[in-house]
């Protein structure tokens, strides 16, 4: 590959190769200050399917150690999104060291709050918002559960802000923390946000989980209890490697579900969500 960028995010180390310089320069700027690994865990490749497609209507194919068949190519302007998708894919398909939950995580007083839910539920936006308001941001995409002691390991990759969430941050954070605005990607409008400095500095500090929330955006404010069996099943669906880990995956997930409280939280807007989270945290976890 003509261009290369390496980055360590929490316990996972990546190398990204690209036929084009632009996406890697954008990443290097946003990941400035992250450690550079010597021997990465995963390789991601951004490449042109045909040689001339490097120059003529460049279209970016995403490859790597672990791949999905028939992944659609992206335009060069969305190249950095391709790299981030490739990194996520390596984690989702290749990560064996931790139970991987599709969840965001923030930390306060050494304890972790996990938020999970379907795409669009707002878990990513909420974690980023809390990260700007006194919590330590641990990750907006994956929570890595330690197979031995159940602790949550941070995976503070760039936050991928989508659609309406973008404007929530554009005015309030330093412009140097925002990547290019990518319009009309397969996932809508996307803009990457560099996590706060303390999230990067503490990327190797795990925290024990204390509360699990299932936020849901766009509904009247409501808080419901959920039975442990339902929580368990929903988390198996939110995990990409639960089946693959076998017995140890079951034990790890059982421990998580039986040791921390969980609630479903409906919210009409982000301010209401932050209020609910703070209240539940004070009541159940603090």
């Amino acid at each position: 590959m003509r261009h290369e960028f390496r980055v360590q995010v929490g316990p996972a180390a990546f190398r990204i190769g690209s036929d084009w310089r632009q996406p890697l320069d954008q990443m290097a700027a946003l990941y400035n200050g992250y450690p550079t690994p010597e021997i990465p865990d995963f390789t991601v490749r951004l490449f042109a399917r045909r040689f001339w497609r490097r120059f003529l209507r460049p279209s970016v194919m995403i490859g790597g150690d672990y791949m999905l068949p028939d992944a659609a190519p992206l335009s060069l302007a969305h190249g950095m999104l391709g790299a981030e998708m490739g990194m996520n894919l390596q984690m989702a398909l290749g990560q064996r060291r931790y139970l991987l939950l599709h969840a965001s995580a923030v930390e306060r007083d050494g304890k972790a709050l996990l938020m999970t839910g379907e795409s669009g539920a707002g878990k990513s936006t909420l974690s980023a918002l809390l990260g700007e308001r006194g919590w330590r941001f641990m990750g907006d995409e994956f929570a890595l559960v330690d197979l031995e002691n159940g602790a949550i390991h941070p995976f503070p990759r760039l936050v991928s802000l989508k659609n309406e969430a973008i404007s929530l941050f554009e005015d309030s954070v330093d412009a140097s923390r925002l990547g290019p605005l990518m319009r009309d990607t397969p996932k809508g409008d996307i803009r990457h946000l560099r996590p706060p400095d303390d999230a990067v500095e503490k990327m190797h500090e795990p925290a024990h989980p204390a509360l699990l929330l299932f936020p849901r955006f766009g509904h009247a404010p409501d808080i419901r209890e959920i039975g442990q069996a339902e929580v368990f099943v929903r988390l198996t669906q939110a995990s990409t490697n639960y089946v693959m880990l076998g017995e140890v995956g079951f034990d790890t997930l059982s421990r998580l579900v039986t040791t921390i409280p969980s609630r479903a939280v409906d919210y009409p807007d982000t301010e209401s969500a932050v209020d609910s989270v703070e209240r539940l945290w004070a009541e159940l976890a603090a």
């Binding site: 180390a13 690994p37 010597e38 021997i39 990465p40 865990d41 064996r96 060291r97 693959m244 880990l245 076998g246």
Partner: peptide, 18 residues
């Protein structure tokens, strides 16, 4: 082997066992 390689190999062995 280097530590990073040892970890990757351990992961691979786990995955093969499965």
């Amino acid at each position: 082997v280097p530590d990073a390689v040892a970890r990757i190999c351990a992961d691979a062995r786990l995955s093969i066992d499965h």
